[in-house]
Nucleic acid binder design. Structure first.
Lengths: 171, 171
DNA sequence: TGCTTCCCTTATCATTTGGTAAGAAGGCAC
DNA sequence: GTGCCTTCTTACCAAATGATAAGGGAAGCA
């Protein structure tokens, strides 16, 4: 049931992209996904005037628009690199050749994000800004060291000013 | 690609349960799911001391612990009926007989909740309590008429008092 | 070097929200 | 009926957050 990552990597090819490079465009029907060898990817939603940070992927994660990969439609978000990155780029068509593996791939990718989002939603429902920040500090401390704070603030549903206040109140 | 609902219904059997009946217990490995003919189901997370309303299902929706149905483990939530309900009860084992249909079933159920939760998360990240309430009023007005407001408050990530204040400020 | 741009912080004030307490209205059991 | 329980509202105060403005520092570029 688990995803065969080595197989997935063998299907793809190694690529390097610079900071701020855009992997996925909003509305795009994605034919690719990536595995992060080094770097951070950021999922961004364009919400009336403001840019919302929906998620970050780190080393070892699979990057791609889930909505689009599943064949549900065009990507709802754009995905950009926060740092210079080294990735394994995988053409979807190469996974689709093996249908059983492709089904397994889709189930794995979606269930992974399903679990992450379920947790994330509970955090928003039950914790205030300080609580959400502390949770991030506890569970993904690398993000706080490698990602600009205004992106973290958006990810936490806060203004940069509020996040700054929360951080200064703690330390 | 879409789920064959008539087929699903033909597999199950009609049942009636009273208000407050518990369909799924936390930790349970579910062998059933349901289609709602009449009534409302409520998904509840037990979060340190407090009870969190994660979701509501209405007429036409498929009810069940997605996490458990996908074989990922025991249910993370309990599911109870908000009203007396009429349901089509479906034994999982009966769907699993047809593997292609079962794969399709799982993909459909999960992608449905994936999309719902993605939207819901964006609401929490970008809107305050009033905004989230107005969104609900616009998009699921039936819930406000049929579900006790303290459950709605929890669903919106608010205290009952805050929701009450928001409602009185609007009307 | 000097300049701009980006990133972050701090301060102030208005608004929103939570916590606590209290009370009203309705349903239900006895 | 009486009494209990649930649900909902209102009021008050403290805390959290947003909006706006301002400033400093670091990085990048001509």
């Amino acid at each position: 049931m688990n995803l065969d990552i080595p197989k997935l990597k063998s299907i793809g090819k190694r690529v390097s992209y610079p900071k701020n490079f855009q992997l996925v465009q909003k509305g795009e029907r994605c034919q690719k996904c990536w595995i992060i060898e080094k770097g951070i990817a950021r999922y961004m939603y364009l919400q009336e005037e403001q840019e919302l940070t929906g998620w970050f992927d780190l080393e070892g994660d699979i990057v791609g628009s889930v909505y689009s990969l599943l064949g549900l439609g065009g990507a709802r978000e754009k995905i950009q690199l926060v740092e210079d990155a080294e990735l394994i780029e995988i053409q979807l068509v190469d996974i689709q050749k093996d249908d059983a593996y492709f089904q397994n791939f889709k189930m794995n990718v979606m269930s992974h994000y399903f679990i992450e989002m379920e947790n994330r939603l509970k955090l928003f429902q039950s914790l205030d800004g300080k609580g959400r920040y502390l949770y991030l500090l506890e569970n993904k401390p690398q993000l706080l060291q490698r990602v600009p704070l205004h992106m973290i603030a958006s990810f936490l549903g806060l203004t940069p000013e509020s996040l700054s206040r929360i951080r200064s109140a703690i330390s």
